[in-house]
């Protein structure tokens, strides 16, 4: 008798399992939510391209998620994904990468992709640290934290990345944590369905290279804290900076229709092709 097989195994590259995420890492939760979201949407992985950068969370699609995969250079997954999406607008193109890739070295690509409103879904796993390289400070690390490159404490305030992406013009933006698995899953589905640039900031945990420096030694410690810190956006609206200090505002930050970049590009090409056709009297 064959072993019972998990229904989501079709969505992962089974041959390389088990995964290599550290015990208590949030990446497994994100992979779980993502595979469930894809299954729930009835998407065939043959219709998907997953693009990632360099870092722990980039391993969620590369190698674990089973679809066409582009594991790119550090910081550039959104730029690579732009080329894929323009040539194959029919495919669902998802970027899963970390805060270092998306908000640090590749921050410029993020804001420009949001401004263009290209139909990509970017799921940024924000663990507030450079975990894979050993716990160096990130642009998302809270001030006052000791990391390997801020041994005397971090003096920089962190980026509020989701808010930045709203301001840059994205169609859909949300923030969740690895504690809020079901709303995250649903949000991923909405992000994929929304035509235009969709972005979810997923606050996640790195017990190994971040948690142990701030007294959160296990994944559970982090989840408890995420639960306490979380504040629905509806409640947060109108609250002062002081009141919002140390809180994580969760929920949907924006969801709007805007002209989509790739459709517009293809419209121009169709128009120009038709114009030349006409000029040449319809000759091939």
């Amino acid at each position: 008798m064959s072993e019972p097989r998990h229904r989501l195994m079709d969505f992962v590259r089974e041959e390389i399992m088990p995964h290599r995420f550290c015990s208590g890492c949030g990446c497994g939760t994100v992979l779980n939510a993502f595979t469930n979201a894809v299954e729930g949407l009835g998407l065939d992985s043959a219709e998907m391209v997953c693009v990632s950068g360099i870092g722990c969370s980039s391993w969620i699609p590369s190698p674990y998620f089973r679809a066409d995969t582009l594991h790119t250079t550090h910081g550039r997954p959104i730029a690579f994904a732009t080329g894929v999406k323009i040539l194959r607008p029919d495919l669902t193109v998802v970027v899963i990468a970390g805060d270092g890739d998306v908000a640090g070295i590749g921050g410029n690509h993020l804001i420009h992709a949001a401004r263009r409103n290209i139909d990509l879904s970017v799921f940024m796993v924000n663990n507030m640290i450079y975990g894979m390289t050993g716990g160096q400070v990130a642009p998302t690390t809270p001030a006052g934290v000791v990391t390997t490159t801020t041994p005397h404490s971090n003096v920089e305030p962190p980026f509020r990345v989701a808010d930045l992406v709203v301001a840059a013009g994205a169609s859909y933006v949300a923030r969740w944590t690895t504690y809020h698995v079901f709303p995250l899953l649903e949000s991923m589905q909405n992000a994929i369905k929304r035509k235009g640039f969709s972005f979810i900031e997923i606050m996640s945990q790195c017990p190994e290279n971040y948690g142990r420096r701030i007294g959160l030694r296990t994944g559970i410690d982090f989840l408890k804290q995420f639960k306490e810190q979380a504040l629905r956006v509806e409640k947060a609206n109108g609250m002062s900076e002081e009141e919002l200090k140390d809180r994580i505002v969760i929920g949907k930050l924006c969801d709007k229709e805007r002209p989509e970049y790739v459709s517009e590009l293809h419209r121009i090409t169709r128009e120009q092709v038709d114009k030349l056709k006409k000029e040449m009297g319809g000759a091939a």
Binding site: A79, V84, I86, L265, H266
Partner: peptide, 20 residues
């Protein structure tokens, strides 16, 4: 289709994505 990217790193990245 011709696009202008935000920099040369992105331009090079986009053409590799397109090639695939």
């Amino acid at each position: 289709i011709c696009i202008q990217m935000e920099d040369e790193l992105a331009s090079m990245a986009a053409i590799v994505g397109a090639a695939w």
